[in-house]
Design a protein around this nucleic acid. Sequence first.
DNA 1: TTTAGCACTCTACACATCCAAGTGCCAATC
DNA 2: GATTGGCACTTGGATGTGTAGAGTGCTAAA
Lengths: 359, 359
Amino acid sequence: MELSERKKAILKSVIDSYIRTGDPVGSKSLAENEQFSLSSATIRSEMNDLESMGYLEQPHTSAGRVPTPQGYRTYVDSLMEKYFLGMEELEVLDEVMSGKLNEVGKLMDEAAKAIGQITNYATFSFLGGNSNIVDRFETVFVDDYSFLLIMICKDGLIRNRHVKLMDPITRETLERAKEALNATLTGLSADQINLSVILDFEEKMKDSRNFATTVLRVVHEMLGSYDQEKVHIDGVTKLLSYPEFMNVAKFQSVLSLFEQRQRFAELMQKAVPGQTSVVIGNEDDELAPPDTGFVFHPITVGGKVVGAIGVIGPQRMDYKKVVASLDYFAKGLVGQIGPAEGKDQLKGASPDGNGKDSE
Amino acid sequence: MELSERKKAILKSVIDSYIRTGDPVGSKSLAENEQFSLSSATIRSEMNDLESMGYLEQPHTSAGRVPTPQGYRTYVDSLMEKYFLGMEELEVLDEVMSGKLNEVGKLMDEAAKAIGQITNYATFSFLGGNSNIVDRFETVFVDDYSFLLIMICKDGLIRNRHVKLMDPITRETLERAKEALNATLTGLSADQINLSVILDFEEKMKDSRNFATTVLRVVHEMLGSYDQEKVHIDGVTKLLSYPEFMNVAKFQSVLSLFEQRQRFAELMQKAVPGQTSVVIGNEDDELAPPDTGFVFHPITVGGKVVGAIGVIGPQRMDYKKVVASLDYFAKGLVGQIGPAEGKDQLKGASPDGNGKDSE
DNA sequence: TTTAGCACTCTACACATCCAAGTGCCAATC
DNA sequence: GATTGGCACTTGGATGTGTAGAGTGCTAAA
């Protein structure tokens, strides 16, 4: 059954009002809200329809109506109007983007903070996927018992590890290991590194077995795991100012999401490049806790999603404002990281990478 | 006025009981608690004394007594008995420590998590101070528009940054920059880098001014700032299981501390090498939020505090258990990082450094 | 010095009441 | 047929009252 224009208008009003106040909205307050020249009874019956169609629900018999996830979904997809950022808001964002930050990671962190300031919700920034293809390895000799292993990926991301050893190595061994790595692992992604590749590498390094094993273990870890450290969350306290999170249990469910950072990576797999996504409550899966909303915008480099920046708030968050902020930042970011890409397309010049990738 | 033995015993009992239950403890329950063969009236008068001496206080007239920060202080310093870790607890910790983790940072994170599991409080691990002395710089050419700058400090800590540039560089320029950095900055700490040092460096790189400026800015940042990213907090949700944090305002004050991570660094300045410190509420300064307790153990490398691992919980936390866990881990850690130091004392072999220093 | 007894204070809880908000339904009206 | 006013009904929240229980301070007696 299609929604009539009037139903749409009423649904939009209900959601707008609920987002603003957080109180269930009743037929009377809507009727008084001039824009409808209808009595509360009429509105009541329309709301009744909307409820049976699944867009609204009542916390209890004598309360007003509250949007369901499905209600929010239609609102976000087709009802809400565009939000235009105000002067101060633009200033906050522009300041971050004009800041001379050489690292995209830092930039994203700052932007997330700024967006949190504008919207008053918690924000996160997230960088790095897990299916990188190795471009090459580099090593730096630190001392006889340790060295730095640097992995440069095709998409420009850089990770590194400081590897400690039990037995001393020489610069020569290290150099040989680097060459062996480059010879065997270049062009492969994590899931392509199988036993034969490993044996190949160990064969090349057979005079220093222990060392080779250690190196492989580190490489494996660098390739395989999402890098939890790269999820930065800011402004969790802001959530405590919303009544829906004053309930300890609710807040706990959100907090525990924050502590399982790898879940962000899963969430990000829903990301559509260049487009702001909205996940409402546990709409589809169990990815997000109930009563919360997620809005995020993926960051793509060379057509590949390498991260995201986003907002976490109550389900009734001000989606239009949040979406506007994220869009504005994402549009600006393309300008920031675009030039480097343009300059050096053939080499796929690192548009990013940033230190945070190291770990 | 000195505390009589009996007063001490009563104070200890009150605190033990309060830590266990979280309820204010009354004279009657203490009197019944066999170990005193005194009537409740006597205990009452003793408690009255303890109250006027500042060790106890009453939430309201008809409630039992609750320890003050001063009360906890005496408890921690001289009253509490030693806690012996149980088999399962030892197992949890041993497993972490025996894990082949090449990086001290990772090790500390895991240990913090384990201690959280044992004690059921929030934990943190923190790595890196800000007054490092530069041992040398290394660079890695990534592509024409970016490179990796690696700073190796005297104490073995390693930091790195992926630096992006607006103009292309050559491997030769990069190599020259590295040599210039090593020539001018080696052996200096952040506060020793003044204008003349900067001018010296710029003079050496005068044919590529922009590049030199960028490099200096990055170096400055690497040297100067506490690295917020290096504070890892785990198990915040655990705190929500204690009634004292069910109050939203209280919990908020703790959370906001977590969001100002640099405050950990300040807190750490109180650290005494090799010794577990306890900070109770806002005992002295405003460092810690009221109603919370901090217990932490600094990690020293070459006599210098480079980090800490610790526990954050309600003021009435089980200090003896927490202290025992931290002590055990710290003792074990010395063994872990000791060997590398021993093997290569002259060179001040990196006992650590770990990737997380990069950022 | 210790103790038993007692009056007093305060909180937590259960219970009752009242009120406002909002609903659904129905008959009257446009 | 859509809209509306009227009305009975439901419900949660706020407010008030009474009671039980825990704990105290004080005092007089042991």
